[in-house]
């Protein structure tokens, strides 16, 4: 079973978010990056489990500049067999998807795994785009996936529950919580990762159909109003008269 796992990097979740002086770009100063949790914890680990069950290979792919190699090496340390980096600094989800699809097109992958969303821009778009370009079925937010070698059974999150479906032949998923349990790379994995192949391929430019004009910070809360625990009628009154939410 040949699985392609798309991995991206995101600022560490507790990062303080700031922008350049004119608010047109995200300030990367002092930001440390991690592998996007959905990619690392769920997509990659489930791919490895399926490989352990059925044999095959797991390839990690990233569209991004050379500095992303650290993240890619981590995917190799967790257990991916090899990796590819498409060498371009993508400006949009479309650019990422076009490059991933171009690579995957004739490589015979049985499945392509993405994360549910990148936790910085929360696009949740790349996976569906890759599927559409390759004309493959797509399942979003998959929290369970079993494969018997012929047919895969997927459970995906929908509002208030899950939907179960089966598919034969190639497909794309985005992985959500529940699909697998996080794996921590061990010393041996880290050593082996250094010798695993990381291929670098030139990227294609894609016309920028969306561009970020500016960033702003959300309005600060006015400060909390503390209510006496003995006086819930007062809280109800405030919710009704002041906040006007009930």
């Amino acid at each position: 079973m040949k699985v392609l796992v798309c991995i991206t990097k995101t600022p560490e979740t507790t990062s303080k978010i700031a922008f350049t002086a004119d608010n047109t770009a995200f300030s990367t100063e002092g930001i440390s990056y991690i592998m996007n949790p959905y990619d690392e914890w769920y997509a990659l680990v489930r791919a490895l489990e399926l490989k352990e069950q059925h044999s095959g290979t797991v390839t990690a792919i990233n569209v991004g500049p050379a500095e992303n190699d650290v993240i890619i090496r981590k995917a190799l340390a967790i257990g991916a067999d090899d990796a590819v980096r498409i060498d371009t600094d993508p400006k949009s989800s479309k650019e990422v998807a076009v490059n991933i699809a171009a690579y995957a097109k004739d490589k015979g992958f049985d499945m392509i795994f993405c994360g549910k969303e990148s936790i910085d821009y929360s696009g949740a778009e790349v996976a569906g785009m890759v599927a559409a370009i390759l004309d493959l079925p797509y399942f979003s937010f998959v929290s369970k996936l079993d494969h018997d070698g012929q047919t895969a059974t997927v459970e995906r999150d929908i509002e208030g529950g899950v939907e179960v479906a089966t598919v034969s032949g190639g497909f794309v998923i985005s992985a959500s919580k529940g699909l697998a349990e996080q794996r921590i790379p061990n010393m041996r994995g880290i050593m082996m990762a250094k010798r695993k192949p990381l291929e670098v391929i030139a990227g294609q430019d894609v016309q920028e159909d969306v561009s970020t004009i500016s960033y702003s910070l959300p309005n600060e809360k006015q400060g909390v109003k503390m209510i006496d625990a003995e006086n819930m009628d007062e809280l109800v009154r405030l919710l009704h008269e002041e906040a006007k939410v009930i």
């Binding site: 989800s93 479309k94 998807a97 929360s122 778009e125 569906g128 559409a132 979003s140 509002e159 969306v210």
Partner: peptide
């Protein structure tokens, strides 16, 4: 921006050759 909407947004953008913004 629901399970259904999010599932088709990217694909629609590809098929209609459109730019897309989610959420």
């Amino acid at each position: 921006h629901s399970a259904t909407g999010k599932s088709i947004l990217g694909g629609l953008a590809v098929k209609l050759n459109a730019g897309s913004v989610s959420g």
